[in-house]
Design a protein around this nucleic acid. Structure first.
Lengths: 340, 340
DNA sequence: ATGAAAGCGCTAACAG
DNA sequence: CTGTTAGCGCTTTCAT
């Protein structure tokens, strides 16, 4: 009886029952000061009684805003992505925004398709993490008339609105930690797909070494692909070298995980035979054996920061912020003084 | 010039430029057989040239469908949740559905608020993982006129449309594995907030023991709260017992992680001094020391299955499926024969 | 303080 | 085959 055929109760149904116009209902429900308190109360009571709830789709059509942001990530099953997304969602939710999730599996074409699809869905803004498209968004954002912010953009060239971990500085700090422990033969295991983050971390590595007057050894610079297996393979290569490096800086924790696994398998003690340091500080890293020294990326904060930037852009702020987040060195037991 | 003030190009703009009615444009763009091939081609070309893209909001208002599903989870930073969500999103995306993410931090009130909010946003269906509300949705789904499916419902009482891991059977299998290794003094570390899954796993534990003619020992049944710390505390309690249990079945991998940490700290060898088995098979579990024997929950598949069920319901299928997924015993090095 | 009317961009009868 | 006409449910001038 209270329900029409189409299902949900509309503003008009409430208006009829309350004996007012549907415009009045619309105003009353949103607490407009134009409506008298008694009317407002009566309308609200009736709406409540009838189980009314707004149709956000209809509202969006007239206001032109959906209060929704799109988030495109490589894979939500990735622990780093999950942490960042949690921060994004939390901040957005606090501000009354919903989050539409889209995954692109690190494929640039899919990434662009997802962005286009989100735009069709009318999102007020788009956030893309670990973009493989990057700079192209400068024109796309304007053309689509939708603000876009990048989080850990992986394409060189830069983008005005983005938040990124300080890869160079953090990597440098990691290697300095090794230098402080007396290490001089320090290897680096990177990532073969020239991500911007990988170039930057290698640059930080080289910077730290050359600043300390340590010559770069090409044989000490290897590539893996962010799997434990590839990390183990690279470790094997390094283990066969003479002289063997006494410390290894890895592109990320997953790579370091492989080095640790190889070391245990070959009875190479960590950190006595060589020190190992990672990057990310995944939850698992503190539970490895030995617990991994690493650079912590503040995932939640980075997500919040990116969401904040995006909502600012949506609100019309003109700020073109290139936020750089600091990484934090977390010293655990996988690094130690040289020659122990 | 090609753009109107409001920003985006509309169907009417294309119609004007192409010299047809906007209805024709609408049909042509969707490939309606009613429109002649030449007209269709011309319209498509013009739309393309003008950078047109549909306004899904407007479309939804008339069709009454948004091709969007809502997913409410406890926390997207949780690795299990991330795995399941990946499966949901993948399946939904393949079928042309977008996913709106909402988190509720395991709070029943927030969970209900999120469901209500998703409904306002016009989602075609809702999927809630690890629900703390459960059975109440029977009436809510009807009242809201939106299909709801539950994944790993944590409230006893059941719900018609849900997919759940076979907790009883899987736990039973885990304990049987221990029994087969010769263990008789087998402890269980559960979870203090009576989740349905925890009750079921304990039930499986008890079933396995009594079926094997092993009497239940109340002192061997403890509660933790799914943190490594609480797992370690429970392990300490068990270690102080005489006789000490020779094996521990943990509610989940995180709890087992704590047991492993405590064991290493106290020089209790795993599995020689006691065997440890978990539940979930998180990514990290294979990298622990020793690698953890556990029950694998097929996260991706569970997500896909739940999404499939939901999309079926949305399509109007009448099936009320209570899908039960099998867990898989993964034997690694944290379990071994008794007395070694 | 309230109502009447217009319109957001689209789909879907109904005509022709 | 194509155009005309109504809305979908809401917000928002503009009157009163």
């Amino acid at each position: 009886m209270l329900f029409k055929k189409r299902g949900k109760v509309s503003i008009k149904d409430v208006a009829r029952e309350a004996g007012v116009s549907h415009a009045t209902v619309s105003r009353a429900l949103r607490g407009s000061p134009l409506i008298s308190p008694p009317t407002t109360a009566r309308v609200k009571a009736m709406a409540n009684k009838m189980g009314y709830s707004v149709n956000a789709v209809a509202r969006s059509l007239v206001t032109g805003k959906t209060h929704t942001i799109g988030v495109v990530v490589t894979s939500i099953a990735d622990p780093f992505v999950g942490g960042v997304t949690a921060g994004i969602e939390a901040f957005a939710n606090e501000r009354g925004y919903s989050t539409i999730l889209a995954t692109c599996h690190a494929d640039p074409e899919t990434e662009k398709r997802m962005v286009a699809s989100l735009r069709e869905r009318g999102v007020d803004g788009i956030l893309v993490a670990s973009s493989r498209v990057g700079t192209e968004y400068c024109s796309m954002a304007a053309e689509m008339r939708v603000p876009i912010v990048l989080l850990n953009n992986q394409r060189p060239g830069g983008y005005p609105d983005s938040v990124t971990i300080d890869n160079v500085g953090s990597a440098q700090r990691a290697v300095e930690h090794l230098l402080e422990l007396g290490h001089r033969r320090i290897a680096y295991i990177g990532h073969s797909l020239g991500y911007a983050s990988e170039c930057d971390r290698r640059q930080g590595y080289e910077l730290a070494l050359t600043s300390a007057g340590v010559a770069l050894q090409p044989a000490y610079i290897l590539q893996a692909d962010s799997t434990p297996e590839s990390g183990a393979t690279a470790a094997a290569t390094l283990a066969a070298l003479t002289p063997r490096p006494t410390a290894i800086f890895c592109y990320n924790d997953i790579t370091a995980l492989g080095v640790l696994a190889y070391s245990r398998e070959q009875d190479l003690r960590v950190p006595q035979d060589w020190s190992v340091i990672g990057f990310d500080d995944l939850f698992l890293s503190q539970h490895l054996y030995p617990p991994l020294t690493t650079i912590r990326q503040p995932m939640d904060e980075m997500g919040r920061e990116a969401a904040k930037l995006l909502l600012g852009l949506i609100a019309g702020e003109e700020i073109a912020a290139d936020v750089r987040m600091p990484g934090e060195l977390i010293v655990r037991q996988s690094t130690g003084a040289v020659g122990h």
